[in-house]
Amino acid sequence: MGALMNIILVENNFLLRSGIEGLIIELPGLLLKEVFDGKEKNLCRKLINKKPDVIIINPNALGDNFISIISKLQEEAGIILIGLLGNDCPENISSRFKNHLPLEGNKHLLLEKLRDACGKDAVYPTNKKTQAGSRLLSVREIDILREVVKGLTNQEIADKLFLSIHTVMTHRKNISKKLSIKTVSGLMVYALMNNIVDINEMG
């Protein structure tokens, strides 16, 4: 199993909230981090600050702010947006979502849709290659980790290893996912533990 995918739910209807929670609990690998009812002040900033992997949104909960909020969220790379949509949802709203959970769907269908949207590997690491690969860091990732724990910034690492800054950021994200360690000091413990760096190399 890879690291947990953090989910945020934006839904103001209690029955639907509880239903979605029930679905998320059924899928190991998914974690419902927080629920918003859609009327919070500065909702967009709050959502992005939580650094979720997935946001499940009922457009009804956002009301008139739907378009402005969804547009901003769409600009955030790395966040999967899932719409909670009924059959009668107008095209201009449903077209905003690549993934959606149909309100009329049965449990089996909903679980399948949710799993597909979040990426199958995150939920069920089925094929052998990803299973083995998702446990161990690649050689490249180890190179990057070594520089991260020395305190280099993403840009400095990119320059040093002749990579684009985007590549470095992707590697960092994958490292944190594989190890379930988010902070630099946590990564440092891992690196020292596994002799990836020496205590004398540390600044």
Partner: peptide
């Protein structure tokens, strides 16, 4: 933020390593 993340890492280190 960061304080929460460190606590999460602490759990990971114990669970996994």
């Amino acid at each position: 933020e960061d304080v929460e993340e460190k606590l999460f890492d602490m759990k990971s280190l114990i669970i996994k390593y």
